[in-house]
Design a protein around this nucleic acid. Structure first.
Lengths: 343, 343
DNA sequence: CAAATAAGTTTACGCGCGTAAATTTTTATT
DNA sequence: AATAAAAATTTACGCGCGTAAACTTATTTG
């Protein structure tokens, strides 16, 4: 590596003996120049410390190679995982992902989109907050930037949606729970911000009807994203009060289940499959910590890899064809039953 | 909001009746223009949809108002929390944070720094991987960009370090454990990548000597960032084998403790303070899920807010004075004992 | 081997903004 | 009201790169 500092593409052209327009082509797409030329550029890059000015590169572009990724809540390991999966896919495809969290706050979600707009991204992958999202703002954003939603759907918004088929996954769980013991009650938030929650309740009703059982839904009053707290306090109280008509509870998401398990443990309510257990508790979504609850949580795992892959490839399809699809496509993947010890 | 699209600052100057250089000043620092002028600009902004071109703005700047934040592992809620705290502080100070995760990989850490270099950030806050970090690369980076390390220290690298005083926090925990029962054994990774681990071991030795007890250190062979797995497998085996000479174990970090608790639960080894419990297990660091283990984990909580605040204000001090401090400053904050039920 | 095509070079311009210098207008001070 | 100081305006240039047009050189094809 030469000590000489290269200040711009002009200078790099001089020392490398390759014309500036050709270098420009190379940096925008190495495959757009002849193989021998590519090799000469790459040899020169080994000898001289030069990188194109990121800002100058992008200022005259209508769009860049940046991809925005917005998740509702990065402190939730579920979104960290799926965010990371998407991030990796973008890098593999030669794009630069920018991961942003809305911190559970619709204003922050709008701020994130606004910040991304200034970056002229090639496209954006958005896992919206849901009910709390500013649908108008997202729709407007979608007219300017190719937008694919994932995890949580908002009707008619964005070019496509990729997520899990809650009807399949909940049915799978209900079917398993009914087959292996008493039919489940359903525990959820009263005003769920995430639209998946509504689908899951609906799926629970349908599935219970299909199995010929009566449905029992219990709703927690709490608001916000502190699901473990809510599960622990309100779900726990229901356990203590013996309010559930069966010994089995299906929680609308993993975090409610984790909170509920905590209270069960504290109050010596034995949960699990063993003969001396008095309750079974199941969750939905899986989660890196689900296997470390006591007992380990039986739950549904979403197919992160498939969702990430489809979301990204759908977005790249739109970007590369430079045309929005005629119809908005929804891709739903099956969840898998993860049988642990809690149900 | 007028329908007219404003394409650049020139046009916005025309419609708002404010000269372009003044607008430029305003966008770089609203306080640098007279109050009445500021008001006029802001009124105009309500009527016209204009934002300066982010790329054109930054291309001629030596540095931007971007702050890079690099954490070793975003899937660990500890780093998500501290990363977020730092992020918020940056926003409050009018900077744009860019949060990147190294995914436990030194190459990714270097890639992150390299990517940040291209963004000409005003400064970078780095929580390094530790032992695995490429010290040379980080030191070199530090000559180009103001760099403050947090969480994990690397000697003589960066302008400052902000973290927790492991000697204080471990002493606090050891003192508590000795006072309330049998003196603790220490459980850690054999080759910890995080330098805090070494400090904690040292602190454990010193603290035990001070209390007049013999030290007992147990090390897990596992590598990588899958601490829960390692704690569960290797720590769990030690529990099963009854290998600990006392009934109390202090784990070098929360995640090892979580894994260990999992195995204890599975093997019906009762952990906690109650008379029928056979072991006490404590952790270090706290963690959003520490309170949901069974039993809830007694641990040390780091002062996120103070660490974030100091790290950010130190960096901004360097940025705004435009001069590196003569001596590298290390700020250590006290940990707090969080007494739950596991020890 | 000549013709056709692909790839690279030379030249030139413009993007949107930062910023400096000279000048004019506004505000503060006495 | 006169003067000084502060702020805004006018004018002008340059940053680093994208990119178009005209031209030259290298490679492929029949």
């Amino acid at each position: 590596m030469s000590q000489k500092k290269i200040r711009n593409m002009e200078e790099f052209a001089a020392v490398s003996g390759i014309s500036r327009p050709t270098l420009s082509k190379y940096f925008n797409d190495p495959d757009s120049v002849r193989k021998s030329t590519r090799q000469r550029v790459e040899d020169a890059l080994l000898h001289y410390d030069y990188r194109p000015n990121f800002y100058a590169m992008n200022q005259n572009r209508r769009t860049t190679r940046n991809i925005g990724i917005v998740v509702p809540y990065l402190a939730d390991p579920f979104f960290t995982e799926i965010g990371r999966a998407v991030e990796v896919k973008c890098i593999e495809a030669g794009y630069s992902p920018i991961l942003l969290s809305s911190h559970g706050n619709p204003d922050q979600e709008n701020d994130n989109l606004e910040a991304l707009r200034a970056l002229k991204p090639a496209g954006v992958l958005l896992a919206p907050l849901g009910r709390a999202s500013d649908k108008g703002a997202i729709t407007k954003f979608s007219t300017e930037v190719p937008l694919v939603l994932f995890d949580a759907n908002i009707e008619d918004t964005g070019e496509a949606f990729v997520g899990t088929d809650n009807f399949q996954s909940v049915d799978l769980m209900v079917e398993y729970l009914c087959r292996s013991g008493q039919p489940p009650c359903f525990f959820e938030m009263k005003s769920p911000s995430n639209p998946n929650a509504n689908k899951r309740r609906q799926a629970y009703f349908e599935s219970m009807a299909r199995q010929g059982h009566e449905a029992h839904v219990f709703q927690a009053e709490g608001e916000g994203w502190d699901f473990e707290e809510i599960g622990s306090a309100e779900g726990g109280q229901l356990l203590i009060d013996n309010a559930f008509p069966t010994n089995t509870v299906l929680c609308s998401n993993h975090r409610l289940a984790i909170g509920m398990l905590e209270t069960a443990y504290k109050k010596d309510i034995k949960v699990g499959l063993e003969p001396d257990a008095s309750m079974r508790i199941a969750g939905h979504d899986d989660h890196p910590f689900s296997k470390f609850t006591c007992p380990p949580l039986t739950t549904i795992s979403q197919d992160y890899a498939a969702i990430a892959d489809r979301a990204v490839s759908t977005l790249f399809g739109i970007i590369e064809s430079d045309s929005k699809p005629a119809t908005r496509k929804e891709s739903l993947f099956d969840g898998k039953l993860v049988m642990r010890d809690s149900a």
